Simulated scan of single mutants.
Amino acid sequence: MSDSINIEVVYALDQRQELVSLKLPEGATARDAVEASGLLHKYPEIDLEGANKLGVFAKLVKPDTVLRDRDRVEIYRPLIADPKAVRKKRADEGKVMKKGGGSASEEE
């Protein structure tokens, strides 16, 4: 077995995404991958201690999670609005939603 693993680190922005491929030693953590990617320097708004969460293939992980070969570490931006609150507001306003989003009156 080799003593290094291949990892991708992804950070999605409004208009594009940053993807960095890395080779790290076995036993590297999600935090190690983000730090090695250089994205923390390029995007100083990333805050691993607070607002930003990390995931591997769309599953939340802690920064100290040990990675496996070919994992993709995702840096999630904080939500602008709470999806539950938005749905509740729409329901309170009496808007009927169709499956998949958008209002039901748009189906015509």
Rank of each mutant, 00 (worst) to 15 (best):
A91I: 00
D14K: 12
L24E: 11
V34H: 13
I7C: 02
E106Q: 11
I7D: 01
I75M: 05
D47L: 10
D47C: 13
S103P: 08
V34K: 12
A36M: 08
G102W: 01
K84D: 08
L13R: 14
R90F: 06
L24C: 08
V86W: 00
S4G: 04
V20R: 15
A104R: 11
G55L: 05
E45V: 10
D32H: 13
K89V: 00
Y76D: 05
M97G: 09
S37F: 07
I80Q: 03
R90Y: 05
S4Y: 01
G102C: 02
V96A: 14
L22D: 13
L40T: 11
D3M: 09
T65F: 04
M1P: 14
V34M: 13
A36E: 13
E106L: 10
K59S: 12
E18M: 12
R16D: 13
I5F: 05
K84G: 09
I46G: 14
K88C: 04
Y76R: 03
F57Q: 09
V9E: 12
R72W: 00
G55R: 08
N52H: 15
A85W: 00
V61L: 07
G27L: 09
T65W: 00
N6R: 12
I5G: 07
P63T: 03
L39D: 10
K59L: 10
V34F: 09
K98T: 03
R77N: 06
S105N: 08
P83E: 04
M1H: 10
K89D: 09
A51S: 15
K89R: 14
A12V: 02
R77Y: 01
Y43D: 12
R90C: 11
K53E: 12
E18D: 15
L19H: 06
S2E: 13
V66N: 03
N6S: 15
E18T: 04
P83N: 07
Y43F: 15
R31C: 09
E49R: 07
L40K: 10
R77D: 05
A33V: 02
I80K: 05
R70Y: 05
L13W: 00
L54N: 06
D14W: 01
S105H: 10
V10S: 07
I75G: 06
E74W: 00
L40G: 14
L13S: 08
K95A: 11
P63Y: 04
G38C: 12
G94T: 02
D47W: 05
K23E: 14
E108K: 14
P78Y: 00
K42P: 14
V34L: 12
S105A: 15
S103A: 14
V10C: 09
D14T: 10
A81L: 06
S37V: 01
M97E: 15
L22M: 09
P25Y: 04
R77P: 02
P25I: 02
V73H: 02
N6D: 12
R72S: 02
E8R: 08
R68T: 07
K95P: 01
R70M: 11
V34G: 13
G100N: 11
F57N: 12
P44N: 12
E35F: 05
D69H: 12
L79V: 02
L19W: 00
E74P: 00
R16V: 02
N52S: 10
